[in-house]
């Protein structure tokens, strides 16, 4: 049953995400691949939408996948699932276990989880980067020149803003710029070919 699956999978993700929304991306990607969710609109496209709309990225992703898989009820079930572990744990800490977060065992756990989460996020970034450039599998690589050009321009703009104008572009600014670059580069190619 899709509602139960959505709820349980997102509950699990809420429970095992340490360090905010980006830490959830590797877990969500695994789950999406496992069940074959998000077929027409892909994972990267969904991430782009979730990062450029308001609200916590984790909630946006849960709502989106829930809606695609189970309509309005699905989006509510997935969102409640991802929120519930946080809600219960924080309530417990605020109400009962006041000094829980100072306990050496808990602190040790958090310190041990930290390098793993960073490794998960960076490896996801590297893999998405490679896929955008045309990586398919160990034996297959179809260079996607359009994406190579867009990425080159994007990194160039980012670097320029950082070094020359001393401004770090925000996620939403980068997404808007990249959408413009996509329109420009793909449009130019369509005109030429």
């Amino acid at each position: 049953m899709i509602y139960l699956t959505l709820f349980l999978e997102f509950f699990k993700m809420g429970l095992f995400t340490f360090g905010g929304g980006y830490a959830m991306i590797p877990l969500i990607e695994e789950t999406v691949l496992k069940y074959g969710w998000l077929e027409t609109v892909g994972f990267s496209e969904m991430l782009g939408v979730c990062e450029s709309t308001p609200g916590p990225v984790a909630i946006n992703m849960a709502t989106y996948i829930g809606s695609v898989q189970g309509g309005f009820l699905g989006s509510i079930v997935a969102t409640v699932g991802v929120v519930l572990p946080s809600f219960i744990i924080i309530l417990l800490i605020a109400a009962v276990l006041k000094n829980f977060t100072d306990h050496p065992i808990f602190k040790g756990f958090v310190r041990g989880v930290q390098p793993v989460v960073i490794g998960l996020i960076l490896s996801t970034g590297v893999i998405l980067f490679a896929k955008a450039l045309g990586y398919v599998s160990l034996t297959e690589f179809n260079p996607d020149w359009i994406s190579v050009i867009i990425l080159g321009l994007l990194i160039g703009i980012y670097w320029l803003a950082l070094k020359v104008f001393k401004k770090k572009l925000s996620a939403i600014q980068l997404i808007l710029i990249s959408a413009g670059l996509g329109l420009g580069v793909c449009g130019a190619q369509a005109l030429i070919v």
């Binding site: 960076l122 998405l128 793909c186």
Partner: peptide, 26 residues
């Protein structure tokens, strides 16, 4: 078509953003 084009760009930005977030934490 234009929306699909824009998303070709957005895909690149998403990969870049995740790398940036990961590197910042690293």
């Amino acid at each position: 078509q234009p929306v699909a084009w824009a998303f070709t760009g957005i895909k690149c930005a998403v990969a870049f953003l995740i790398l940036r977030a990961g590197y910042g934490l690293f």
